[in-house]
Amino acid sequence: MIAMDTTFLASSPALAALGEITTAHYVVLSSLIFAVGLFGVVTRKNAVVILMSLELMLNGANLAFVAFSRQHANLQGQVFVFFVIAVAAAEAAVALAIIIALNRVKGGVSLDDATELKG
């Protein structure tokens, strides 16, 4: 689909390793994006940023879906990504509404203030 002359990569052995992209590359990348999102969720207080981190995690998973979809020559992975995006949109709408409500009740969006959900 998008093509580019990459033969120059093969000219150098060091670059050759860069040139051979396997599904595993994508999976590792997806886990890295996931981990970054997770890092945000764990370390941040701001509910809006945490929500963005969640979106990042979802994207990490999406990447793995598409990669495996290609690997297995099966479009269902991409269909699943479509549904993930739909669910993410729904989730964002509801979560942002919750954040607005939280801001109204607690006077801020720090999740450290919302600790009612405890055992």
Binding site: M4, L29, G37
Partner: peptide
């Protein structure tokens, strides 16, 4: 697979993500 889309896209996604959370 085109390597440049992977490296470019990966760098954007990962870097953007890291900056997002920090």
């Amino acid at each position: 697979m085109d390597p440049w889309t992977f490296w470019l896209g990966g760098a954007l996604a990962l870097g953007g993500g890291l900056l997002t959370v920090t």
